[in-house]
Simulated scan of single mutants.
Amino acid sequence: MIHVLLGICALSCFFFHFTDSFRAADGRVYYGFVTPRGLALFKTGLGVEVPRDEKYVMGFVDLIHAAMSVVVFAAIALSDHRVTNCLFPGRKEEMNEVMETFPLMVGVVCSGLFLVFPNTRYGIGCLAA
């Protein structure tokens, strides 16, 4: 069950980096999923014109952000001794050695990549400009 739970959480970290929002002419905020062809609204048939701007097209930066968020989630999840004891029983000493440096390395590398490739999405929970 821990594998399923960690998999679902990792998939949600990946998925939510491909969400974006926009503010329509009526002032309401609409959310959608970013695709290679543009923004696809979660709820269709609303009669709202979806912007066709280039910023609503999935790009390489989106993939980097999604992959790095999964790596950060894995570092945080594996830093808990209860998770590692469940996933790797009998390997407590080895995991303690690895987990002393792994979260720090992931934090440094992912922070650097997030600085080099800034996020411009206003996903679920963020208000569109």
Rank of each mutant, 00 (worst) to 15 (best):
V98C: 08
V70M: 12
A77R: 10
P89I: 00
F15I: 05
S12L: 14
Y30W: 05
D53M: 10
A67P: 00
K92F: 02
I64S: 01
G47T: 09
F14Y: 13
V48N: 00
V29T: 11
F14V: 04
E54M: 13
L39Y: 01
R52W: 11
R23I: 03
S79L: 10
P51L: 08
L87R: 05
S21C: 08
L41I: 04
L63K: 06
D20L: 10
A67M: 13
A25G: 11
L46S: 08
H65W: 09
F16T: 04
V57Q: 09
E49C: 08
L46K: 03
M58S: 11
S79T: 15
Y56F: 14
V83N: 05
S79M: 13
V50N: 07
S12F: 00
A74E: 02
T101A: 12
R91H: 12
D80S: 15
L63G: 08
E94N: 12
D62T: 00
A25I: 07
K92M: 07
F22T: 02
E100H: 07
D62C: 06
R23K: 15
C13V: 04
G47E: 10
N85P: 06
T19G: 07
A40I: 05
I76H: 00
V34S: 03
T44G: 13
P89A: 13
A67T: 09
E49K: 04
S69M: 14
S79P: 11
H65S: 02
V71S: 00
G38Q: 00
G32H: 07
K43Q: 14
M58V: 13
L41K: 02
A40G: 08
E54A: 15
V48F: 08
L63D: 01
F88K: 12
E54T: 12
